[in-house]
Amino acid sequence: MSDTVPMPAGGYAYMPGVFQYSCGVGALPGFEIRRVTFDTPVPLEAGFAWIKAFLEAAGRPLEAFCACELRSPGQFSEDGFRAFNELYCGTLEAWGIYEDGINPVARSNVCPEIGAPATPSFHAFSYTVPSDAGPTFVIAGSGEVPEGKNNYFDHVVARGDQSPEGMRAKARHVLGEMERRMASFGKSWADVTAAQIYTVFPIHSFLAEELVTRGTARHGATWYFARPPIVELDYEMDTRRVLSETVVSV
């Protein structure tokens, strides 16, 4: 895996990103990433407690927690997003995962337009187990803006443009970022078992040309009627190769 950092205690490697999440994770040899989806969103604090108990019951260390998918009530300002992330990272720090400003856990955090939870909540999480099932990975969510800039707003692709061509430009940027991140793990769309799209704007005008022809939707593509977590972002995606997925009711 190029451009990745091993996390031996967790059984995975990660692609460094920003303080709130990594760009993606891939299971180390001898391990497999598995995914658990909550039937209904679970508020963050209760979700962390449930996941902790789940990992302990499975005989896995807390460091095996390698990715999560969150749902939030609405889009954040940049300052609000940073404040939320500092609280989120506090739990990972207490778990011995987040250290010295480095977060190996991949993440998506989006805002359902209809039926959003009242508080930030878990939709799903991923963890590692010893296994010879073969390579598995989870790529973190990305919107139409480069990570690591001094601010988001000055760098949004086609900012404020939700026309078909504006949305196509946003999608192209995000698809390219998904491909860049997968390449760090030596993977491509041919390896993907699930691709997820988050936007409240139409995607049909470019779905075939930009997604299907790339192989993005070889297992279909799941479209969530949701917004990225920061105001003025309109399109987000994440993707994964996970061979074992479970739904639980909490």
Rank of each mutant, 00 (worst) to 15 (best):
F206N: 14
R71V: 04
L243H: 10
A9Y: 02
G215P: 14
V200Y: 08
A169S: 11
L207M: 15
G186C: 06
L243S: 06
I97V: 15
S205V: 10
V25D: 01
W223N: 07
V157P: 05
E232N: 08
R227H: 05
S72W: 05
G160M: 06
R71N: 14
E236Y: 07
R218W: 02
V157Q: 03
G24D: 01
C111G: 05
C68I: 03
A158V: 06
A171S: 08
T213K: 15
G141Q: 03
R168P: 00
S184L: 05
R168I: 03
F48P: 07
G101I: 11
E93D: 13
H219G: 05
A169Q: 15
H219C: 09
T246Q: 15
S188F: 06
L44S: 14
G134R: 14
P8G: 07
V157G: 10
Y12M: 02
G24S: 12
A49L: 04
G90F: 05
P117T: 11
N151S: 09
E86M: 04
E56Q: 00
I97G: 08
F65H: 02
M178P: 00
F225L: 05
E179W: 13
L87A: 15
R168E: 03
A118I: 04
L175G: 04
A57T: 03
S163I: 07
G148P: 08
V200D: 03
T119N: 05
I102S: 12
N151F: 01
T246E: 09
C23R: 09
E147S: 11
E45C: 00
Q162P: 01
R60L: 15
H155C: 02
G215L: 06
V18W: 02
